[in-house]
Structures are given as structure tokens and as C-alpha cells.
């Protein structure tokens, strides 16, 4: 989680996965290389765990749907895509970008895709925090009685 969302591979794989499918589709570059699937997109699930009391022993809370795929570019670079949900095109886009981000197109893609996505995610988090802060209770004390 602490991985930089734009600099490390774990970081960008998460950032791309967490983007909405529509937004990532919009940001995709036009000139995409061919790719060959090493693992065709498939829908499955992972079990999400919690901990007893928040900090104790793990327990199985429930599953979530996940779609994954792996592909390679003509140059041999391999890209992986794991996304929540059942959108195979989204997983494919993530895998394609994962591969491209390991090539010399990385710095351009970082600017056109990763940085905007990171900024948008941070803005969404901030907007939620600002709404939550507006519902924070300020307690005050009423003085009762006349001998105050």
C-alpha cells in the first residue's frame, strides 16, 4: 500500500486496477502494440479476510470478484492485470499498460496515465474526507442553573 503508485510496479498495478474501467479506457493511448495472451482474461474470486477484533486472528469475511490476465508484447515483455470485478477489457488494459510501463514508453505513460489517475484518486479521497469532516460533532457545554 505504501508503494508509490506511479514509480513501482506494485504501485501502478494497483492504481490502474482501482481506476474506473471507463476512465482508464478514456486515457488509453491510441497506438497500442499487438499482444499475445499468456493467460486469457478469466473471472474468479479472492477471499477477503478480516481479523478478530480488528487485530487478532484472521477470519474469512467474504469473497470478491476478480478478473485476471497475462499477456506479452512482440518484444517479449510480459504484463499482468488483476482487477476487482468482472470487466475483462479492464484487466486487459491493465496488463497491456503494465507491459508498456516496463519499456521505453514508461515515462510518457507515467505522465499521460499514471499521474492523472493518481491525482484523481487523491482528489476523490479528499472529497470524501471533506464531507466526513463536515459531519464531525463539536460538543459544547450548556451551563444550567442560576448559581453559575
Amino acid at each position: 500500500m505504501s508503494a508509490s503508485p506511479t514509480e513501482t510496479r506494485a504501485g501502478w498495478l494497483g492504481l490502474l486496477a482501482r481506476a474506473t474501467p471507463a476512465r482508464l479506457a478514456e486515457l488509453m493511448p491510441g497506438d497500442l502494440p499487438d499482444h499475445r495472451f499468456l493467460r486469457a482474461p478469466e473471472v474468479g474470486a479472492i477471499m477477503v479476510q478480516g481479523r478478530t477484533g480488528g487485530t487478532g486472528a484472521p477470519f474469512n469475511l467474504g469473497e470478491m470478484t476478480v478478473t485476471r490476465c497475462a499477456l506479452s508484447l512482440p518484444c517479449g515483455t510480459v504484463g499482468h492485470g488483476h482487477v476487482a470485478g468482472r470487466d475483462k477489457a479492464h484487466a486487459t488494459r491493465v496488463a497491456l499498460l503494465d507491459a508498456l510501463l516496463q519499456t521505453d514508453r514508461a515515462s510518457a505513460l507515467r505522465q499521460t496515465i499514471l499521474e492523472p489517475l493518481a491525482a484523481e484518486e487523491a482528489a476523490r479521497a479528499k472529497a470524501r474526507a471533506e464531507k466526513a469532516a463536515a459531519t464531525k460533532v463539536d460538543f459544547f457545554t450548556m451551563v444550567r442553573g442560576e448559581d453559575a
Binding site: 473471472v43 474468479g44 479472492i46 478480516g50 481479523r51 474469512n60 469475511l61 469473497e63 470524501r128
Partner: peptide, 19 residues
């Protein structure tokens, strides 16, 4: 659905709380 794996236990202390 095939089971791909198991998540790490979620860290609820780090939750981005709305309530």
C-alpha cells in the same frame, strides 16, 4: 468462480472512515 487466492487480512485501523 475459481478461487484465485486470499487477500491479506484487511487493516481496519487504516480505514478511510466516512462514519
Amino acid at each position: 468462480l475459481p478461487r484465485f487466492g486470499v487477500s491479506r487480512p484487511v487493516d481496519t485501523a487504516a480505514m478511510a472512515c466516512i462514519r
